[in-house]
Design a protein around this nucleic acid. Structure first.
Lengths: 211, 211
DNA sequence: CCTGGAGTTGTCCTTTCGGACAATGGCGCA
DNA sequence: TGCGCCATTGTCCGAAAGGACAACTCCAGG
């Protein structure tokens, strides 16, 4: 593999100072990689991207200003050719799916070994989509479930908050029967026996986030 | 602050290669800190501790062989004077509590800046317990809730799995009434209106872990 | 134009929940 | 010895949940 010339410019986005230091340490093993900027939150990330126009961005999914995927979208909106590699701990297949749909050119786990990280960046910079087998597997499992509708996505977080069908109906402005219908559909689509299990599955799969 | 002489020997335990690299990079800023070993899982960690007898151990809570706190316990059992600093992303107050109870000499968030990390290690090595204010706050909030009984700790995961009171009773070998009583008690102690909210709270607080 | 999916609103019926209250036995601690 | 906490088992009751159906509207896609 030929080295990048000029060097591959990189933007690092992660709210963990120590992890950023680790990335820089690993990336410094390649003379043809150059970290031109780093950011610890989404707003700074978008700004830094605009300023430095890096050829590759490494982005954490979980950022303090609660986005990561939003930052990805903002960056891809500014430059649709931008290459962004998501780098995160496992967050459920929904997050992976959303990241790839938003145009990420790969999805690495933070547990990635150094060599694989370098290879993934190289592959992504050359236009390939780098997705590790374990992530791929999760995505395929996911495909067996149907997509959720917009309404279902509105109802689900309310169920997770412990609200009753009547409460949900009041908030979203329809009758209890409608709420029941949506919940019934959610149970079927996610394979849950009742709303309690629904919460566990939804959280595990990253369809909703607690806090 | 006087430098450590001989140098402070350190063991690093974290399953993320990149994060370990970051730790080493930050720690190398102190000439009197010396990383003598590192481990990516609990078993290796205990082994490395036995072999190198480091004066300080930095340990991630979440390890692939599903322990972290177990590794902490194993290490403290071998050497009750061992100093172990937990270093992790937020995992709910229950994990913090269990770690400190098991003898951790501090609990840092992975988002910790480099300087604070170095200061925390220094403080912990000198016998102080380093706990950042945000973690302290979480622990105090927690104190307002009562401790769970052993039975409640058995029942809770089953509730989270979506089982009914009757199912739970069958598994644990008592009647549905007893299951109801425990669930009622859990609802009261954790401040949940129903078992759906109970799941959300239990997961958020780290009383149960999904997967 | 017609089909299908989504969203909406219902009914009927059985099961489950959760609150209030009460009673028993055990075990530790003062 | 007695008090309190825990675990256990109940009863009664109203509210909520969830399955099985059915029907209507709207709208996009073939």
């Amino acid at each position: 593999m030929l080295p990048f010339d000029p060097p591959l410019t990189l933007l690092i986005v992660d709210d963990h100072f120590v992890f950023r230091a680790g990335l820089k340490a690993v990336l410094s093993l390649r003379r043809d990689f150059e970290v031109v900027a780093e950011a610890g939150d989404a707003a700074t990330a978008v700004e830094a991207f605009h300023k430095h126009e890096p050829r590759m961005t490494l982005m954490d999914l979980r950022l303090p200003d609660r986005s990561g995927i939003e930052a990805l979208r903002a960056i891809r909106k500014e430059n649709p050719a931008a290459r962004v590699l998501m780098l995160t701990t496992f967050d459920g297949d929904e997050d992976i799916h959303r990241a790839l749909e938003a145009g990420a050119c790969g999805y690495l786990l933070k547990s990635v070994p150094g060599q694989e990280l370098l290879r993934a960046i190289e592959a992504a910079a050359l236009g390939k989509r780098y997705i590790p087998p374990e992530v791929q597997r999760r995505l395929e499992e996911r495909a067996t479930f149907g997509e959720l509708t917009d309404r279902e996505r509105e109802v689900l977080p309310l169920v997770v908050k412990g609200l009753t069908n009547k409460d949900i109906a009041g908030i979203l402005g329809f009758t209890e029967f409608t709420a029941k219908a949506h919940v019934r559909s959610l149970l079927a689509k996610l394979g849950a026996a009742d709303r309690t299990e629904l919460v566990a599955i939804a959280v595990q799969r990253g369809l909703v986030h607690l806090e």
